[in-house]
Write a protein that binds this DNA or RNA. Structure first.
Lengths: 158, 158
DNA sequence: TGTGAAACCTCAGGAAT
DNA sequence: ATTCCTGAGGTTTCACA
C-alpha cells in the first residue's frame, strides 16, 4: 500500500485471495504473495481500516436455507422528489427478504432483488409491503428462472 | 444438525454469525452459541460439506477498488430455445465486469449487473461484448444512482 | 525473529434420543 | 444403536513486541 492510499500489486493480490477465500490466514496469504506473515497482517489491518474490505461474509446456498424463489422487481414511483425516493427506500430496505434495493435512472425508479420460500410469500410481499406504499405507481415482477452468475467479487485492476 | 440434513437452531445461529463475520473462529462462535469449540468445528465442516456454505468472501468497496459505475442491463433475445439462452449466458458470464447474469420470466430475458470504471467502459462493453451477439434483440440500460441496500446475507428461518 | 497466547485437531467418555 | 456434546492432550498457528 503506497502512502497516498492507493493499492499496490501485493494489496491487489491479497484482496483477490480474500474475495475467494475470506478465511485464509495471514501465514498462507504470505506464502501465496511472497511476503512475511507480519507484513500481511499489517496490510490486512489497513485494508480494513481504509474501507477497501467492508466485511467478510459466508455465502450461503439460498435453496438449502429455504429461499428457493428469487424475484426481480422493478418499481416506478409517482414522484421523484428526494423525499419520496428516500421514503420509499427506507420503507422497503428494512424487509429482510429484500437483498438488493437500488435507485435507477430510466423508466423504472427502483430495482429490488427478493428471495422467498415460494410464490405465495411473494404475493404477501407485494400486497402487504410494496403495493400499499402510497408513492408506488407501477410494479413489474420477474421470476428468476436460472441463475447463471451471482458473484460478489470484483475483478481488480493490476 | 439433525440426521435428515435439516438445520437445527444452533446451525442457524452459526450461519447467521458467519454471514456477518466470516472470520470468526470456532472458539468465539462457541462462546456465542454456548457450545464447545469442538462441536462448532464439527458443525462447520458439515455445513460446508453439505453445501449450505458455498464459500467465504471478502466484500469490497466497489468505489475504492476502481469500479464506481454500476449498471443494470435488461436484455431481450430474438429466440427462446434452450440453446440460444445458454449460448447467450455462456458468452456474457465470462466477462469479469459482469457480476450477475440471471435468466428472467417476462418481457426481458436476462438481467445483468455490471461494474465499471466509467461510462466509457460501459459503452465498450455494449459495443464489443453485448450488442455484437447475434441473439440480442433489445437492450435496456439503467445507471444505478444510489445503492440503498446490497446485501448477500439471507434471513434464516428459525 | 522470537515468545506467549491462541486456535486447531483428535480421541475417549458420557448424555440424550 | 446412534448421534451429539464435552474436555483434555498435544500440535500448529497466530499476534504482538
Amino acid at each position: 500500500m503506497t502512502q497516498n492510499g492507493q493499492l499496490d500489486p501485493t494489496d491487489i493480490r491479497i484482496l483477490e485471495i480474500l474475495q475467494q477465500d475470506a478465511r485464509m490466514d495471514a501465514t498462507h496469504i504470505g506464502l501465496a504473495v511472497h511476503k512475511s506473515e507480519a507484513a500481511i497482517r499489517k496490510r490486512l489491518a489497513k485494508l480494513r481500516e481504509q474501507g477497501y474490505i467492508r466485511r467478510f461474509a459466508a455465502l450461503l446456498d439460498r435453496r438449502l436455507v429455504g429461499r428457493p424463489t428469487l424475484m426481480i422487481t422493478l418499481v416506478k414511483l409517482n414522484g421523484h422528489a428526494s423525499a419520496v425516493l428516500q421514503a420509499f427506500a427506507a420503507a422497503i430496505q428494512v424487509h429482510p427478504e429484500v437483498q438488493v434495493c437500488l435507485h435507477l435512472s430510466g423508466e423504472y425508479d427502483f430495482i429490488l432483488q427478493i428471495t422467498l420460500r415460494d410464490a405465495a410469500e411473494y404475493e404477501d410481499f407485494l400486497e402487504q409491503k410494496l403495493c400499499c406504499l402510497p408513492m408506488v405507481d407501477k410494479v413489474h415482477s420477474s421470476l428468476v428462472l436460472k441463475e447463471y452468475k451471482m458473484e460478489p467479487a470484483f475483478p481488480l485492476e493490476k
